[in-house]
Design a protein around this nucleic acid. Structure first.
Lengths: 248, 248
DNA sequence: CCCCGGCACTATGGATACATTTCCTGCCAA
DNA sequence: TTGGCAGGAAATGTATCCATAGTGCCGGGG
């Protein structure tokens, strides 16, 4: 890819991966010495990586108190969805005026990819990664077509908010996935016709519903979200000090 | 303020100021050794500061090629206004449902401040800073009332785009300023009545017009924008290598 | 018994020294 | 003259060392 040939970039990727995958939990303190040793680099590039991650929104920092994995409240997650809905709806409106034959075909292909992945009547586990990629690509493509780089940039940031990302697929209810994919089809259709407001409205609903569904899933299967402390209900006794477990 | 007592933060502030004020021009290469010496610090905190500035959008970075002051195209500036319009309009919609007596009074006070500043029938140069502050406060207040932290955060980023910021006041035409201030009055009024869509529409126009006006000013008085290379028309022969002027 | 102050330890911030990459320059050959 | 290659100067990336702020413990005093 983009040559991770500096230790700094390497550290950034590893850390981002560790955070997004849940290996590092929100609230965890990011010890410079330990992390540096774990990654096999010195503290200098590690600190550079952490500094970058701060402004990416994955990590927090306080002078002389170090870095920590950022925590999100549920309100922040909900707010992230709301802004995403607004920005991606905007992207649809703009993209409608920019559609080319190539753009139409690109979107159509992504829709077809989804059709194929869902063809079995359920989302096979081994297809989940592909589906996720298709989903991300679809949204990214629309935003790119809008021609407004800020939209992509900001939505990208929002993808760092746990559970507010396209990466998260609610795989339990197949009908929900089917409907979500059908939204894509309708958005592509509206865009192909140059009907920006129509596409925009579908996109807004598409994302708004995702939040609603997340909320529902959260109540039904809270255990699925244990690694996402924004939803870790009790959550006033923060974990993170797993070091000294007082012998009960 | 917020303890600028680490060299890193100090460097960040100085650099930001230098960039926003135009002392450092977009495209300028940011030499680590020289800057460090100028600021009287070593390269370590300087690099930390630069890394931070990268993610705030003021500076660009390429591995092994160093940092440079970011350049913006006119399209990017226009796009920044468009996203600002969308996000701040959204903020109005949300804020309308959150209005308290205190909030009403706060907005009313800001409007009154503006009234006082414009009372002389023109914007006195010595009042420009105050007016600018009032303007920033007004927009920030509305966004805060929306309760969605992402809106503030993103609009904040956009303020780093040259000429897309509230900090920039078009002072030439007093009627434009008066009208802009009247928009504030109407927005505050609509919000006080809980009429979010109405406030939202005015806000959108408020910002959209600002872009249009900027465009007009650019054509009338291009010399005012020489320090903002997004508008530096010819601009294929970038300055920045002012060091070695080949003897013509 | 609780609170306060000081001390030691730990972790972070910054500086310097070293390694690696880039890029400029000058030379050579086509 | 021009293109390319090689060598070296310069700038960036990284490691290590020192300084300093933060934190927790301990003891003394109220």
């Amino acid at each position: 890819m983009t040559e991770p040939h500096t230790s700094t970039e390497l550290a950034m990727r590893k850390l981002r991966e560790a955070i997004l995958s849940g290996d590092l939990l929100p609230g965890d303190k990011l010890h410079q010495d330990r992390l540096a040793e774990m990654l096999g680099i010195s503290r200098t590039p590690l600190r550079a990586a952490l500094t970058t991650l701060v402004q990416t929104g994955l990590v927090t920092y306080e002078s002389n108190r170090g870095f920590a994995v950022r925590e999100f409240s549920f309100d922040e997650v909900a707010g992230a969805f709301a802004v995403r809905a607004e920005l991606e709806a905007m992207a649809c409106r703009l993209a409608a005026g920019q559609m080319t034959e190539a753009a139409n075909q690109h979107l159509a292909r992504l829709v077809a990819d989804g059709d194929r992945l869902l063809e079995p009547g359920r989302l096979l586990p081994e297809k989940l990664a592909d589906y996720r990629q298709m989903n991300v690509d679809f949204h990214t493509t629309v935003m790119q077509l809008s021609g407004n780089p800020w939209i992509i940039s900001f939505v990208q940031s929002l993808h760092n908010v746990p559970a507010a990302s396209d990466r998260v697929i609610m795989w339990r209810d197949f009908r929900v996935i089917e409907r979500s994919h059908d939204d894509h089809r309708r958005i592509a259709h509206a865009l192909a016709l140059g009907q920006g407001e129509r596409a925009s409205a579908i996109m807004r609903e598409h994302i708004t519903f995702a939040l609603e569904h997340l909320h529902l899933q959260l109540q039904l299967y809270p255990q699925d979200f244990l690694r996402i402390p924004a939803f870790d209900k009790p959550a006033k006794t923060r974990p993170g000090d797993r070091s000294k477990r007082t012998t009960a």
